[in-house]
Protein backbone atom coordinates (compact mmCIF):
# COMPACT_ATOMS: atom_id res chain seq x y z
CA UNK A 1 0.00 0.00 0.00
CA UNK A 2 1.41 3.40 -0.97
CA UNK A 3 -0.12 6.33 0.91
CA UNK A 4 -0.23 9.90 -0.29
CA UNK A 5 0.77 12.81 1.93
CA UNK A 6 -2.05 15.15 3.05
CA UNK A 7 -2.79 17.94 0.58
CA UNK A 8 -5.63 20.22 -0.43
CA UNK A 9 -7.12 19.51 -3.87
CA UNK A 10 -8.39 22.55 -5.78
CA UNK A 11 -10.66 22.22 -8.78
CA UNK A 12 -10.81 25.64 -10.45
CA UNK A 13 -13.29 26.12 -13.29
CA UNK A 14 -11.34 28.67 -15.31
CA UNK A 15 -7.72 29.33 -16.20
CA UNK A 16 -7.59 32.67 -14.35
CA UNK A 17 -8.61 31.00 -11.09
CA UNK A 18 -6.02 28.23 -11.59
CA UNK A 19 -3.24 30.78 -12.11
CA UNK A 20 -4.42 32.66 -9.05
CA UNK A 21 -4.13 29.48 -6.96
CA UNK A 22 -0.64 28.75 -8.28
CA UNK A 23 0.39 32.26 -7.30
CA UNK A 24 -1.28 32.19 -3.90
CA UNK A 25 0.40 28.93 -2.86
CA UNK A 26 3.71 29.50 -4.67
CA UNK A 27 6.42 27.11 -3.43
CA UNK A 28 3.91 24.60 -2.07
CA UNK A 29 1.71 23.83 -5.07
CA UNK A 30 1.74 21.82 -8.30
CA UNK A 31 -0.65 21.54 -11.21
CA UNK A 32 -2.15 18.09 -11.78
CA UNK A 33 -3.84 16.88 -14.95
CA UNK A 34 -4.39 13.12 -15.33
CA UNK A 35 -2.18 12.44 -12.33
CA UNK A 36 -0.77 9.29 -13.94
CA UNK A 37 2.78 10.57 -13.49
CA UNK A 38 2.38 12.87 -10.51
CA UNK A 39 0.35 10.54 -8.26
CA UNK A 40 2.85 7.62 -8.46
CA UNK A 41 5.66 10.15 -7.95
CA UNK A 42 3.93 11.58 -4.86
CA UNK A 43 3.41 8.04 -3.57
CA UNK A 44 7.19 7.67 -3.87
CA UNK A 45 7.63 10.98 -1.97
CA UNK A 46 9.38 12.55 -4.95
CA UNK A 47 6.99 15.49 -4.60
CA UNK A 48 4.92 16.50 -1.59
CA UNK A 49 3.12 19.77 -2.35
CA UNK A 50 0.53 20.96 0.16
CA UNK A 51 -1.79 22.05 -2.67
CA UNK A 52 -2.74 20.53 -6.00
CA UNK A 53 -4.46 22.52 -8.74
CA UNK A 54 -6.50 20.26 -11.03
CA UNK A 55 -6.38 21.26 -14.69
CA UNK A 56 -8.90 18.90 -16.27
CA UNK A 57 -11.84 21.15 -15.44
CA UNK A 58 -10.42 24.15 -17.32
CA UNK A 59 -12.34 24.66 -20.58
CA UNK A 60 -9.40 26.68 -22.00
CA UNK A 61 -7.31 23.49 -22.06
CA UNK A 62 -9.79 21.41 -24.06
CA UNK A 63 -10.56 20.90 -27.73
CA UNK A 64 -8.82 19.59 -30.84
CA UNK A 65 -9.39 21.89 -33.81
CA UNK A 66 -7.93 22.98 -37.12
CA UNK A 67 -7.33 26.74 -37.14
CA UNK A 68 -5.28 29.02 -39.40
CA UNK A 69 -3.08 26.35 -40.91
CA UNK A 70 -2.51 24.58 -37.61
CA UNK A 71 -3.88 21.69 -35.63
CA UNK A 72 -4.47 23.04 -32.13
CA UNK A 73 -4.41 20.45 -29.37
CA UNK A 74 -5.77 21.29 -25.90
CA UNK A 75 -3.32 20.31 -23.14
CA UNK A 76 -6.00 18.64 -21.03
CA UNK A 77 -7.21 16.36 -23.83
CA UNK A 78 -6.72 12.71 -22.89
CA UNK A 79 -4.24 10.54 -24.75
CA UNK A 80 -7.05 8.25 -25.90
CA UNK A 81 -9.01 11.13 -27.40
CA UNK A 82 -5.81 12.30 -29.10
CA UNK A 83 -5.15 8.81 -30.50
CA UNK A 84 -8.74 8.44 -31.72
CA UNK A 85 -9.48 11.96 -32.99
CA UNK A 86 -10.22 12.15 -36.72
CA UNK A 87 -8.15 15.33 -37.24
CA UNK A 88 -5.13 13.78 -35.54
CA UNK A 89 -5.52 10.46 -37.32
CA UNK A 90 -5.86 12.04 -40.74
CA UNK A 91 -3.29 14.87 -40.51
CA UNK A 92 -0.88 13.65 -37.84
CA UNK A 93 -1.07 9.84 -38.00
CA UNK A 94 2.30 9.28 -36.32
CA UNK A 95 1.22 11.44 -33.38
CA UNK A 96 -1.94 9.34 -33.09
CA UNK A 97 0.25 6.23 -33.10
CA UNK A 98 2.68 7.64 -30.52
CA UNK A 99 -0.19 8.60 -28.19
CA UNK A 100 -1.80 5.18 -28.72
CA UNK A 101 1.48 3.45 -27.77
CA UNK A 102 1.66 5.10 -24.36
CA UNK A 103 1.26 2.89 -21.31
CA UNK A 104 -2.06 0.99 -21.56
CA UNK A 105 -5.74 1.72 -22.24
CA UNK A 106 -6.67 2.80 -18.69
CA UNK A 107 -3.76 5.20 -18.40
CA UNK A 108 -4.56 6.64 -21.84
CA UNK A 109 -8.10 7.37 -20.68
CA UNK A 110 -6.80 9.34 -17.69
CA UNK A 111 -3.53 10.87 -18.89
CA UNK A 112 -3.32 14.12 -20.82
CA UNK A 113 -1.18 15.56 -23.59
CA UNK A 114 0.01 18.43 -21.36
CA UNK A 115 1.08 15.97 -18.68
CA UNK A 116 2.97 14.00 -21.29
CA UNK A 117 4.84 17.12 -22.42
CA UNK A 118 5.64 17.97 -18.78
CA UNK A 119 6.41 14.35 -17.77
CA UNK A 120 9.12 14.14 -15.15
CA UNK A 121 12.35 12.46 -16.34
CA UNK A 122 12.84 8.83 -15.32
CA UNK A 123 15.69 6.79 -13.88
CA UNK A 124 15.97 3.37 -12.24
CA UNK A 125 17.41 5.03 -9.13
CA UNK A 126 14.69 7.67 -8.94
CA UNK A 127 11.33 6.03 -9.69
CA UNK A 128 11.34 4.02 -6.48
CA UNK A 129 9.71 4.20 -3.07
CA UNK A 130 11.17 6.43 -0.37
CA UNK A 131 12.28 3.28 1.49
CA UNK A 132 14.18 2.00 -1.56
CA UNK A 133 15.82 5.35 -2.31
CA UNK A 134 16.74 5.89 1.33
CA UNK A 135 18.38 2.43 1.49
CA UNK A 136 20.56 3.41 -1.46
CA UNK A 137 21.46 6.79 0.01
CA UNK A 138 19.30 8.85 -2.39
CA UNK A 139 20.67 10.65 -5.48
CA UNK A 140 21.24 14.10 -6.96
CA UNK A 141 17.78 14.44 -8.47
CA UNK A 142 16.05 14.03 -5.14
CA UNK A 143 17.22 14.18 -1.52
CA UNK A 144 20.86 13.18 -2.21
CA UNK A 145 24.18 14.36 -3.61
CA UNK A 146 25.53 11.55 -5.81
CA UNK A 147 24.54 10.11 -9.17
CA UNK A 148 24.38 6.32 -9.44
CA UNK A 149 24.40 6.36 -13.23
CA UNK A 150 27.46 8.52 -13.85
CA UNK A 151 29.81 7.86 -10.92
CA UNK A 152 31.22 11.17 -9.72
CA UNK A 153 28.79 12.97 -12.03
CA UNK A 154 27.47 16.35 -11.00
CA UNK A 155 24.55 16.48 -13.44
CA UNK A 156 21.45 14.32 -13.42
CA UNK A 157 21.02 12.37 -16.66
CA UNK A 158 17.59 10.84 -16.03
CA UNK A 159 15.78 9.97 -19.26
CA UNK A 160 13.16 12.03 -21.03
CA UNK A 161 10.61 9.22 -21.44
CA UNK A 162 7.51 10.81 -22.96
CA UNK A 163 6.20 9.44 -26.24
CA UNK A 164 4.52 12.46 -27.84
CA UNK A 165 7.36 15.05 -27.77
CA UNK A 166 9.72 13.40 -30.33
CA UNK A 167 7.12 13.33 -33.10
CA UNK A 168 5.72 16.74 -32.09
CA UNK A 169 9.27 18.16 -32.34
CA UNK A 170 9.79 16.54 -35.74
CA UNK A 171 6.53 18.17 -36.85
CA UNK A 172 7.66 21.60 -35.62
CA UNK A 173 5.12 22.02 -32.81
CA UNK A 174 4.88 25.02 -30.53
CA UNK A 175 3.82 25.09 -26.85
CA UNK A 176 1.48 27.79 -25.56
CA UNK A 177 1.65 28.52 -21.86
CA UNK A 178 -0.03 30.81 -19.36
CA UNK A 179 1.31 32.03 -16.02
CA UNK A 180 0.47 34.89 -13.65
CA UNK A 181 2.98 36.94 -15.72
CA UNK A 182 1.07 36.39 -18.95
CA UNK A 183 1.01 34.06 -21.93
CA UNK A 184 3.86 32.94 -24.18
CA UNK A 185 4.60 30.53 -26.96
CA UNK A 186 7.84 28.58 -27.50
CA UNK A 187 9.14 26.05 -29.99
CA UNK A 188 8.90 22.60 -28.42
CA UNK A 189 12.62 22.14 -29.22
CA UNK A 190 13.45 25.03 -26.92
CA UNK A 191 10.91 24.04 -24.29
CA UNK A 192 13.10 21.05 -23.33
CA UNK A 193 16.48 21.52 -21.68
CA UNK A 194 19.22 18.96 -21.04
CA UNK A 195 18.83 18.86 -17.27
CA UNK A 196 17.59 15.61 -15.76
CA UNK A 197 16.33 17.30 -12.60
CA UNK A 198 13.86 19.64 -14.34
CA UNK A 199 14.00 19.17 -18.08
CA UNK A 200 11.70 21.90 -19.31
CA UNK A 201 11.91 25.66 -19.16
CA UNK A 202 8.41 25.72 -17.65
CA UNK A 203 8.27 27.76 -14.45
CA UNK A 204 6.47 26.16 -11.49
CA UNK A 205 3.51 28.54 -11.89
CA UNK A 206 3.26 28.12 -15.65
CA UNK A 207 0.49 26.05 -17.23
CA UNK A 208 0.79 24.47 -20.68
CA UNK A 209 -2.49 25.40 -22.36
CA UNK A 210 -2.10 23.90 -25.84
CA UNK A 211 0.18 22.51 -28.48
CA UNK A 212 0.07 23.89 -32.01
CA UNK A 213 1.23 21.77 -34.93
CA UNK A 214 1.58 23.23 -38.44
CA UNK A 215 -0.66 21.40 -40.92
CA UNK A 216 1.71 19.05 -42.74
CA UNK A 217 2.24 19.65 -46.46
CA UNK A 218 0.95 16.88 -48.75
CA UNK A 219 4.50 15.52 -49.32
CA UNK A 220 5.30 15.08 -45.63
CA UNK A 221 5.84 11.47 -44.53
CA UNK A 222 6.25 10.53 -40.87
CA UNK A 223 6.93 7.59 -38.63
CA UNK A 224 7.25 6.89 -34.91
CA UNK A 225 9.21 3.93 -33.51
CA UNK A 226 9.23 2.85 -29.87
CA UNK A 227 11.47 0.26 -28.19
CA UNK A 228 10.14 -1.57 -25.14
CA UNK A 229 10.20 -5.04 -23.65
CA UNK A 230 6.42 -5.48 -23.50
CA UNK A 231 4.05 -4.18 -26.13
CA UNK A 232 1.91 -2.53 -23.46
CA UNK A 233 2.45 -0.69 -20.16
CA UNK A 234 6.15 0.06 -20.71
CA UNK A 235 7.83 3.43 -21.14
CA UNK A 236 10.15 3.73 -24.16
CA UNK A 237 13.72 2.47 -23.83
CA UNK A 238 14.43 4.32 -27.05
CA UNK A 239 12.12 6.25 -29.32
CA UNK A 240 12.61 7.72 -32.74
CA UNK A 241 10.47 10.11 -34.75
CA UNK A 242 10.90 10.96 -38.41
CA UNK A 243 9.29 13.63 -40.61
CA UNK A 244 10.55 13.81 -44.14
CA UNK A 245 9.18 16.13 -46.82
CA UNK A 246 9.35 14.85 -50.40
CA UNK A 247 8.82 16.83 -53.61
CA UNK A 248 6.83 15.59 -56.62
CA UNK A 249 9.92 13.75 -57.81
CA UNK A 250 10.37 11.90 -54.46
CA UNK A 251 13.42 13.99 -53.61
CA UNK A 252 14.00 15.12 -50.02
CA UNK A 253 12.95 18.72 -49.33
CA UNK A 254 13.24 18.57 -45.56
CA UNK A 255 14.14 15.95 -42.98
CA UNK A 256 13.77 15.91 -39.21
CA UNK A 257 14.87 12.97 -37.09
CA UNK A 258 14.49 13.03 -33.31
CA UNK A 259 15.87 10.35 -31.00
CA UNK A 260 14.61 10.27 -27.42
CA UNK A 261 14.42 8.30 -24.15
CA UNK A 262 18.22 8.10 -23.95
CA UNK A 263 19.12 11.33 -22.11
CA UNK A 264 17.34 14.20 -20.40
CA UNK A 265 16.38 15.91 -23.65
CA UNK A 266 15.15 14.51 -26.97
CA UNK A 267 17.98 14.84 -29.51
CA UNK A 268 17.46 16.23 -32.99
CA UNK A 269 19.96 14.42 -35.23
CA UNK A 270 22.11 17.05 -36.95
CA UNK A 271 23.64 17.22 -40.39
CA UNK A 272 20.86 15.39 -42.21
CA UNK A 273 19.67 18.25 -44.42
CA UNK A 274 23.12 18.59 -46.07
CA UNK A 275 23.25 14.84 -46.48
CA UNK A 276 19.81 14.24 -47.90
CA UNK A 277 18.43 17.43 -49.43
CA UNK A 278 17.61 17.02 -53.11
CA UNK A 279 18.33 13.27 -52.96
CA UNK A 280 16.06 10.29 -53.28
CA UNK A 281 15.99 8.02 -50.23
CA UNK A 282 17.94 5.16 -51.74
CA UNK A 283 19.50 2.37 -49.66
CA UNK A 284 22.94 3.93 -49.41
CA UNK A 285 21.52 7.22 -48.18
CA UNK A 286 19.35 5.41 -45.65
CA UNK A 287 22.47 3.64 -44.32
CA UNK A 288 24.33 6.94 -44.06
CA UNK A 289 21.43 8.51 -42.12
CA UNK A 290 21.37 5.44 -39.86
CA UNK A 291 25.13 5.82 -39.20
CA UNK A 292 24.76 9.52 -38.39
CA UNK A 293 21.94 8.79 -35.97
CA UNK A 294 23.93 6.01 -34.32
CA UNK A 295 26.98 8.23 -33.85
CA UNK A 296 24.89 10.97 -32.24
CA UNK A 297 23.00 8.66 -29.84
CA UNK A 298 24.63 7.77 -26.55
CA UNK A 299 22.37 6.00 -24.09
CA UNK A 300 23.29 5.94 -20.41
CA UNK A 301 22.51 3.34 -17.77
CA UNK A 302 19.59 5.43 -16.50
CA UNK A 303 17.32 2.46 -17.21
CA UNK A 304 18.60 -0.97 -16.25
CA UNK A 305 18.16 -2.49 -19.69
CA UNK A 306 21.18 -3.34 -21.86
CA UNK A 307 22.45 -0.01 -23.22
CA UNK A 308 24.17 -1.72 -26.14
CA UNK A 309 20.77 -2.96 -27.27
CA UNK A 310 19.22 0.49 -26.89
CA UNK A 311 21.99 1.98 -29.02
CA UNK A 312 22.11 -0.83 -31.58
CA UNK A 313 18.41 -0.32 -32.24
CA UNK A 314 18.93 3.28 -33.40
CA UNK A 315 20.04 2.36 -36.96
CA UNK A 316 17.42 -0.41 -37.08
CA UNK A 317 14.71 2.13 -36.22
CA UNK A 318 16.04 4.62 -38.79
CA UNK A 319 15.67 1.98 -41.52
CA UNK A 320 12.23 0.95 -40.29
CA UNK A 321 11.06 4.54 -39.96
CA UNK A 322 12.14 5.52 -43.45
CA UNK A 323 10.66 2.39 -45.05
CA UNK A 324 7.42 2.88 -43.13
CA UNK A 325 7.23 6.57 -44.04
CA UNK A 326 7.83 5.81 -47.73
CA UNK A 327 5.31 2.97 -47.77
CA UNK A 328 2.50 5.10 -46.46
CA UNK A 329 0.59 7.30 -48.90
Amino acid sequence: MLRLHPYEYHRPRELEAALELLKEHAGDVMPIAGGTDLVPNMKHRLFAPGHLVALKGLPELHGIVERQGEIVLGAAESLSSLADHHLVRSHLPSLARAAGAIAHPMIRNQATLGGNICLDTRCTYYNQTFFWREALGFCLKKDGDVCHVVRGGTRCVAAHSADTPPILMALGAKVDTASPEGVRSVELDEFFIADGIWNTQRKPDEIVTRLRVPLPSPGLRTSYQKLRERRSVDFPLLSLALAVGLDGDDRVESIALVVAALGAKPRRIGGLETLAKGERLHDELIEEIARQAYRQSNPLDNIIVDIEWRRAMVPVFVRRAIREALARP
Binding site: T36, V39, P40, A54, K56, S80, M106, I107, N109, Q110
Partner: peptide, 18 residues
Protein backbone atom coordinates in the same frame (compact mmCIF):
# COMPACT_ATOMS: atom_id res chain seq x y z
CA UNK B 1 -9.70 -0.87 -12.60
CA UNK B 2 -13.19 0.66 -12.28
CA UNK B 3 -15.38 2.37 -14.85
CA UNK B 4 -15.64 6.14 -14.76
CA UNK B 5 -18.54 7.21 -16.98
CA UNK B 6 -18.06 3.87 -18.72
CA UNK B 7 -14.32 4.22 -19.36
CA UNK B 8 -11.87 1.86 -17.63
CA UNK B 9 -9.84 3.90 -15.16
CA UNK B 10 -7.18 3.12 -12.55
CA UNK B 11 -8.71 4.04 -9.21
CA UNK B 12 -5.37 3.71 -7.36
CA UNK B 13 -3.93 6.80 -9.03
CA UNK B 14 -7.13 8.82 -9.30
CA UNK B 15 -7.59 11.56 -6.69
CA UNK B 16 -11.07 10.92 -5.30
CA UNK B 17 -12.23 14.44 -6.20
CA UNK B 18 -11.93 13.53 -9.90
Amino acid sequence: TVLLDGLPTLSCILPVQE
